[in-house]
Simulated scan of single mutants.
Amino acid sequence: MNVRHGSLLFACLLGLSLLTGCGTGVPPAAGPPADLNATSSDALGTVVTDAQGHVLYRFDGDTAQPSVSHCYGQCAELWPPVLAGSSTITGQGVAQSQVSATTREDGSQQVTLAGWPLYRYAKDTVARQAAGQGMDGRWFAVTPVGGKASQAPPSSTSDSGGY
C-alpha cells in the first residue's frame, strides 16, 4: 500500500470514528445541580432549596456571627443539618460570598448562608414543601440573602418538640 492510500484509509477511519463517537444525538449532560438554589415558592416568595428541591431553614436558636449550630440530638433528627458534601458549596441565585460552613460538634461541616446554619425539615417529603415554616416561631425558610421568609406559615401545627 502506498502512502497516498494509507493516508486515505486513515482519514476514512478517523471520519468514521468521529461520526460514531460524536454523532449520538444525545446532548451532553448538564453539570451537577447547585448545592443551594434560589427557588420561587407560591406560599413563601423566593427561598433557598437544596439540589433535590427541598426547602432549607434557619433556626433562631443558632447564632450567625459566629456561625454556631445549637440543634443536636432529637432536634437534628427532626431538623437534619445540611452538610457540605465537598469543600466547594455551589449556589444558583445565592451570593457565593455568603455561603460557607461551620464545624459541628461531631466534626462534620454544616452549610451556612450569611452565617446561619442551614437545615431541612424531616416532614417536608416533597420538593418545595415548607411545612416547617414558622414552626414554634423559631424555624423559618431561608431567603437567598440568609433572611427569614416572611409570609405566613402554611399551617399552624406545632410538632417540633420545642426545639
Rank of each mutant, 00 (worst) to 15 (best):
M1T: 10
G6A: 09
S7T: 13
L9M: 06
F10D: 11
F10T: 07
F10G: 14
L13A: 11
L13C: 12
L14Y: 04
G15T: 12
G15C: 09
G15Y: 09
L16E: 06
L16R: 09
S17K: 00
S17W: 12
L19K: 07
L19Y: 14
T20W: 15
T20D: 10
G25K: 00
V26I: 14
V26Y: 12
V26C: 12
A29P: 13
A29N: 11
A30C: 05
G31H: 00
G31Y: 04
N37H: 04
T39P: 00
S40M: 03
S40R: 00
S40H: 01
S41G: 10
S41V: 08
S41A: 04
S41N: 13
A43R: 11
L44A: 00
G45T: 05
T46Y: 10
T46H: 06
D50A: 07
Q52L: 01
G53E: 02
G53S: 05
H54K: 05
V55C: 01
L56K: 05
Y57P: 00
R58P: 05
R58L: 11
F59P: 01
F59L: 07
F59D: 03
D60H: 14
A64K: 04
P66Q: 11
S67D: 13
S67C: 07
S69H: 02
H70V: 13
H70K: 13
C71G: 01
C71N: 00
C71P: 03
G73M: 12
G73P: 09
Q74F: 04
Q74S: 09
L78P: 02
L78G: 01
W79G: 08
W79F: 07
P80R: 01
P81A: 07
P81G: 05
P81M: 08
P81D: 10
V82F: 12
V82W: 04
L83W: 02
A84G: 15
G85L: 00
G85H: 00
G85A: 11
T88D: 15
T90A: 00
G93M: 10
A95C: 01
Q96L: 06
S97K: 01
S97Q: 12
V99D: 14
T102S: 11
T103L: 08
E105L: 13
D106K: 03
D106C: 02
G107P: 02
G107M: 02
S108Q: 14
S108L: 07
Q109P: 07
T112H: 08
L113E: 09
A114V: 01
L118C: 08
Y119M: 06
R120D: 06
R120F: 07
R120Y: 10
A122V: 14
A122K: 15
K123W: 03
D124L: 11
T125F: 02
T125K: 02
V126M: 13
R128W: 00
Q129W: 09
Q129R: 13
A131R: 13
A131V: 07
G132E: 02
G132I: 05
G132T: 02
Q133R: 03
Q133L: 07
Q133F: 02
G134E: 01
G134F: 04
M135A: 14
D136H: 06
W139L: 11
W139P: 06
T143N: 06
V145A: 15
G146M: 12
G146Y: 14
G147R: 02
K148H: 15
A149N: 10
S150I: 11
Q151H: 14
S156R: 15
S156A: 13
T157E: 15
T157Y: 12
S158F: 12
D159N: 14
S160D: 08
S160M: 12
G161A: 07
G162V: 14
Y163F: 09
Y163L: 14
